[in-house]
């Protein structure tokens, strides 16, 4: 556990000192909140900002999580990984450190976006909703980071990784319930959206403001995250020995 935190602290330090990267990742979700959340004329809700904010928080986590693998890719390309693998600390700590770092980074970015949503006039964020949102985002973020770090084990260069990342992120977001409720979607989209884990995370946050909460979705996300974590450890062990 100690080694996980050591790797985590290294990545955190490097990330925070990268100043530009810290802020640039926030531009896209902030733009969604401002230019879509405030501007889009909608008929199904009085406050589109309140509707879209959970979706944008999950989007923030989605991009942060999918970005997580690139950190591992660079460690691999630049020779850090080989140095770490020759250390006596448990090798899986490298992987868990990355997953933890990616998830926490996503939570920090989501916090800024949540603050921005409140400043723009979102009213749904009661203290208990904020706590629940963090829980959902943590589970969702762990799932994505485990997935993206596994992906990074197999992709050879950063270009390939960025391509796969772009290929997955956008469709996952647009086929979710982020931008509109199921009953305004065309039936084909609604059918896809109901099975998209991105929707599950968004629906969980929305439902907490307007119960009942679909606890089965939360359970499904937790199980998915655990399974993905197990797959990720297995792959990591196979690739590094």
């Amino acid at each position: 556990m100690n080694a996980v935190l050591v790797y985590f602290a290294r990545d955190m330090r490097r990330w925070i000192r990268g100043r530009f990267n810290v802020w640039s990742a926030l531009i896209m979700p902030a733009a969604w909140l401002i230019f879509v959340g405030l501007a889009l004329p909608t008929r199904f809700t009085d406050s589109y900002l309140d509707f879209i904010a959970p979706g944008i928080l999950v989007l923030t986590m989605l991009s942060a999580g999918m970005q997580g693998g690139s950190s591992l890719i660079f460690d691999k390309i630049l020779g850090f990984l080989n140095k770490f693998l020759a250390l006596p600390s448990p090798r899986e700590a490298i992987l868990y450190g990355k997953i933890l770092f990616t998830t926490v980074r996503g939570l920090l970015q989501a916090s800024v976006i949540m603050l921005l949503a409140v400043l723009l006039g979102a009213t749904i964020f009661t203290p208990s909703l904020v706590a629940f949102t963090y829980l959902v985002l943590f589970v969702f973020g762990a799932l994505l980071s485990a997935f993206s770090t596994s992906l990074a084990l197999f992709v050879q260069d950063h270009d390939g990784y960025a391509a796969v990342n772009a290929l997955l992120s956008m469709p996952l977001f647009f086929t979710s319930s982020a931008l509109m409720p199921y009953d305004v979607m065309p039936p084909w989209l609604a059918a896809i959206a109901r099975y998209n884990p991105v929707s599950w995370a968004i629906d969980l946050i929305r439902s907490f403001a307007a119960p009942p909460v679909p606890w089965t979705s939360l359970l499904a996300l937790v199980l998915l995250a655990l399974a993905m974590g197990a797959v990720s450890s297995l792959l990591f062990r196979r690739v590094t020995v």
């Binding site: 330090r13 490097r14 020779g79 140095k83």
Partner: peptide, 8 residues
């Protein structure tokens, strides 16, 4: 490879 963390 000369892998040291330049931001540390």
């Amino acid at each position: 490879d000369m892998a040291v963390d330049i931001k540390l």
